[in-house]
Amino acid sequence: MRDFAPTKRGFVLLLCLLLLPALTGADEGTARRLINAQGCKGCHSLEGSGGNRGPALDGVGRRLTADQIERQLLNPKARNPDSIMPRMTHLSAENLKALVDFLSSRK
């Protein structure tokens, strides 16, 4: 019969699984705060609130890959020269990643 004593690898895996929701929630909270603080909802809607000048952010993860979302955030005029969306180049790498991860999860 096999001994079921915890192994180091098993403990690390369990710890990661337990911390994953907290880490995901923190990034989601950061992304939601950024969406509000950067004024995104002035033009884009999300979950039923916001503007309609730009495309809805609901489902953006179905329409664009994470790389495309990041490029859109950093240089909106590349895809649409008439875009009035400001560049998000002032965001830290961590905030940009949180925003891209959140938006790409909107399926």
Rank of each mutant, 00 (worst) to 15 (best):
Q68P: 06
K8S: 10
G10D: 06
K97T: 14
S104A: 12
R87F: 02
R87Y: 05
P81Q: 04
S92M: 00
L17T: 10
L23H: 11
K107V: 05
P21E: 01
A31V: 00
L91V: 02
L18R: 08
P6T: 05
R53G: 11
S49I: 14
M88N: 12
C16Y: 10
K77G: 03
L18G: 06
D3L: 11
D3V: 09
I69W: 01
P81H: 01
R71Y: 01
L57H: 01
L91G: 01
G39P: 02
D67C: 08
S49C: 07
R9K: 14
A66Y: 01
P76D: 02
R106T: 01
L15V: 15
R32E: 10
G29M: 09
P76S: 04
D27H: 15
L57M: 05
G39A: 03
N75H: 13
S45T: 06
G39T: 02
K97Y: 11
G39E: 00
A22T: 07
A31R: 04
I84M: 09
S45P: 01
L103D: 00
L103F: 03
V60E: 03
P55Q: 13
L103E: 00
L74H: 07
G59Y: 04
R9I: 13
G54N: 12
R2G: 07
A93R: 14
L57W: 02
P6Y: 05
T65R: 03
C40A: 02
A66R: 00
A78E: 15
